[in-house]
Amino acid sequence: MTTHVLGDTGILTGRSLRHILRSPDTIITTAVTPIALMLLFVYVLGGAINTGSDESYVNYMLPGILLITIASGIAYTAYRLFLDMQGGIFERFQSMPIARSSVLWGHVLTSLVSNLISVAIVIGVALIMGFRTGASVGAWLAVAGILILFTLALTWLAVIAGLSAKTVDGASAFSYPLIFLPFISSAFVPTDSMPGPVAWFAENQPVTSIVNTIRALFAGDPVGSEIWIALAWIVGIFVVAYAFAIAAYRRKIS
């Protein structure tokens, strides 16, 4: 039956992508909040923020905005998974001769596609607001790779939430701290402007290294060792979240 994993995943991904096509508001609402934040920071607060570089502020804060976009987008994955389990469709799939992991992977790949669309919309708005980059094709690919990995890692966190939530609200509430994390990082202001303990936290949490790496890639600067710290964080979150998600899934279907 394992031979069907890819085929079944494809069919189930098609199913949940159709859900998104029928309610495109999930993509739009995902993009609206980051865009509003971007407008607020660039046109209201940005003038008073000294980033210590001569880059435009929209260039400076876009990486953090992209991470916020993804962090809010994955909540829909937990939501859709939770609804599947509440209705009978999850049990129907489980009682059918299909590869069992494909039920989760269908949701994960759908999350990837919808988040990348939201990210593209946000980048489009940023370009209108004056975002400019001289990044090479290789740098763009590196940014895309980091964002894809980041989405996958957070999506598996969303899978845990979706599988173990008791209510719809619980299924999406887990994403609030994730959305908040970029504010205590180098995403909007340099960390050295923060008081000691806060600066220490900001410098040693995953968002800062990821933001700095993407910022350097967009600016065409050397990324240095920061990219390895960023990748270690992302892959670490991915592996741990995946393991817990699969364990939660096993408990659910056994």
């Binding site: 069919i11 189930l12 199913r15 159709r18 309610s23 209705g87 009978g88 049990e91 129907r92 059918m96």
Partner: peptide
């Protein structure tokens, strides 16, 4: 099952096609 296990977002026909594909 006890609660109709249909995908409410999909049409009736799409529900049937989905199951046929998965089988």
């Amino acid at each position: 099952g006890q609660f109709a296990a249909v995908d409410e977002v999909l049409t009736g026909r799409e529900n049937l096609v989905l199951v046929a594909k998965l089988r």
